[in-house]
Design a protein around this nucleic acid. Sequence first.
DNA 1: TTTCCGATCCCCT
DNA 2: GGGGATCGGAAAA
Length: 205
Amino acid sequence: MLLGALLVREDETGRRVGRIVETEAYAGPEDLASHARFTSRARNAVMSGRPGIAYVYLVYGMYDCLNVVTGPPGRASAVLIRAVEPLEGVATMRDSRRRVGRRRRERSYPDGRCRHATSRPVPDRHLARGPGLVGACFGVDRSWTGTDLCDPASVLRLEADPRADDRPFAVTEGPRVGVRYAGLEWAGRPWRFAIDGHPSVSRAR
DNA sequence: TTTCCGATCCCCT
DNA sequence: GGGGATCGGAAAA
């Protein structure tokens, strides 16, 4: 169970901590929504390896999404971390996030300023509200694939929340996001999990 | 409020 | 050659 656990990055860039509030499960090769369905080993070989290892992929040519390999070796499966509640290193997250999509903003606003006075800064609790944003906030890209997230010595790792007793939560489940291509049988499975009512959970689109 | 679009690039078919 | 485990801003309503 990853919900409620802490995602930690600690190195010369500082210490960033986020509490996992939303995940999605991807089963083995038979799951038509999972990257494990591809026969090619190049991209997803790590998914068949030891659990607890990071699998990071690029979506839409722009966003890196962080997964945790979950199945026993030989059975490719993973959990996508879809959203995190920023707890520590918020300024670093915001700065790291700003770099992603910068080129696009420069194209939209060549003069370097936003035209709309109504646009407000993103609140802290929404910094990592989505899988692409989790990768952006933690500065994780595909080169991080293979990192052992369960090794306490890793720069990027998972930790139990020492304050878990103070933060009880209920879990909601629903269909996974953005996998309509997989067909009803797989797209309809309620394999998206979130902390009920948490403001850092990604919005339905 | 909801819907739509472009950005950007890697991998599979 | 084509579309995707996304996102933010603009247009539509």
